[in-house]
Nucleic acid binder design. Structure first.
Length: 399
RNA sequence: GGGGAGGUACCCAAGCGGCCAAAGGGGGCGGACUGUAAAUCCGCUGGCACCGCCUUCAAAGGUUCGAAUCCUUUCCUCCCCA
């Protein structure tokens, strides 16, 4: 996996195909690979969501495959297109971001993406570089190459139309601009999730219309989030971020639905199909397989040491339901007060949002101090060191 | 440009002068049960030292003892016609 290596044609194709949803058209990909050229592999990045989650890694890992085969990856930061915001999957128009936010997000993105990509083999471009220079005349000529019907046939738009939801005029330009990126860098292959199929195809179309060798569109499945139903996304809260605490990553993965196990293995790890099948044969309890998955992914984005700790933490906190050794430590947050209403303390420690919530949890017997449930809504805590458990997931040592 | 329908809590959606901190569903959280999860059952779900007070029903004003509900203006969305 690490570093470049040589594979013959069939092996290369096999590596590229693993886990993909569609390659359009597959023949063109074969031709391009056969040519022996160093290919331009494009991925467009939306700088609105700085925190990468496992959903993003699916595509990034595929890019990494291309890098390992010696090709050139070009990440395009959509600093210009973000003025529009990709309408894909959105029922609402997005607010535009300002320059500082975009730059900050792009930086965060880069640091996280290089956990997967080979920095040396990655080129980063900002699409304002060429898009901001397009004149109105050029834009008109560009948009003349596509019909309204063609653009509106896309699901996102047609659904919104049907549902009487708004579509702003500028949103329909988005696919065109993304397509223009492909022209600007002369892409050979563009990657994306299946939700990007339409945009990728428009890129292919435009390249052809402008006399370039059209790009191959390669789509990866969109992985379902921890709820097992909707796609993984930060706004839905069903995500596992790669920069999250090892304990969190491990814990979240352990709470995913069983049905997703196989898919996660294929798209998020390097286990081969055979190895995965072996695991399923070897273990009866999906929990054990999940632990292997959680361990592998935690290790991938943190370290082996962290992964071991996270696994231990999980075992003590959830399997044995005892208090984890390395629970986060918190200092008594007051200078003069030596005792305080418990919900107030929880808020001041940043563990809860409101005292009302704390009061509710108390009423539900969800808060424990030194492993003893507190049921008194008016409970006063005294300064000193103690173990605090709130609900199932929050553990803290107050000192 | 003309006519009509709308904007309610995280989301969908009731309410159309007081009994509304606002039905119902979804989601989330907690408890039970488990394999950690799913499914199921029960409970909670604006804030505040909290049997009371404070801020919420697109925004700003107004009517009223009293407004999410009535009036005015503004902003936003959809539909039909041109």
């Amino acid at each position: 996996m690490k570093g470049g290596f040589y594979l013959n044609f069939d092996e290369s194709i096999k590596l590229i195909k693993r886990g993909t949803e569609e390659i359009i058209p597959f023949d063109d990909l074969e031709k391009k690979i056969k040519s022996g050229r160093k290919l331009n592999i494009k991925l467009g990045i939306d700088p609105t969501a700085p925190d990468l989650h496992l959903g993003h890694t699916v595509v990034l890992s595929k890019l990494r495959n291309f890098q390992d085969l010696g090709h050139k990856v070009i990440l395009i930061i959509g600093d210009f297109t973000t003025l529009i915001g990709d309408p894909t999957g959105k029922s609402k128009t997005r607010p535009a971001l300002n320059v500082e936010e975009i730059n900050k997000n792009a930086e965060t993105y880069k640091t996280q993406a290089f956990k997967i990509l080979d920095k040396e083999k990655t080129t980063i471009r900002y699409n304002s570089e060429w898009l901001s220079k397009i004149s109105l005349e050029e834009l008109i000529k560009l948009s003349a190459k596509f019909t309204v019907a063609r653009i509106l046939e896309r699901e996102t738009f047609s659904e919104r139309l049907k549902a009487n939801e708004p579509i702003s005029l500028h949103e329909i330009l988005y696919p065109l601009l993304q397509a223009y990126d492909s022209v600007a860098i002369n892409a050979d292959v563009e990657l994306g999730g299946t939700d990007q199929t339409f945009n990728l195809l428009i890129g292919r179309d435009l390249m052809e219309k402008m006399g370039l060798e059209p790009q191959v569109c390669l789509t990866m499945p969109i992985i379902a989030g921890l709820d097992g139903k909707q796609k993984m996304s930060k706004s839905l809260g069903n995500y596992v971020g790669i920069a999250e605490e090892p304990n969190t990553v491990f814990g979240k993965l352990m709470s995913m639905p069983d049905e997703l196990l196989r898919q996660y293995f294929i798209l998020l790890t390097d286990f081969t199909e055979d190895e995965i099948s072996m695991l399923f044969k070897k273990y009866d309890n999906p929990k054990d397989i999940k632990k292997i998955l959680a361990f592998d992914i935690t290790k991938r984005y943190s370290s082996e040491e962290d992964a071991i700790k996270a696994r231990e933490n999980f075992e003590t906190a959830f399997e044995k339901r005892s208090f984890p050794e390395d629970a986060a430590e918190y200092r008594w947050p007051y200078e003069s007060e030596n005792e305080v209403w418990l919900p107030k303390l929880l808020v001041d420690l940043g563990l809860l949002k409101s005292t009302s919530e704390g009061k509710r949890l108390l009423a539900q017997g969800a808060i424990e101090i030194n492993e003893e449930a507190i049921n008194d809504e008016k409970f006063i805590v005294k300064k000193g060191s103690f173990k605090l458990k709130v609900g199932r997931k929050i553990f803290a040592r107050v000192i």
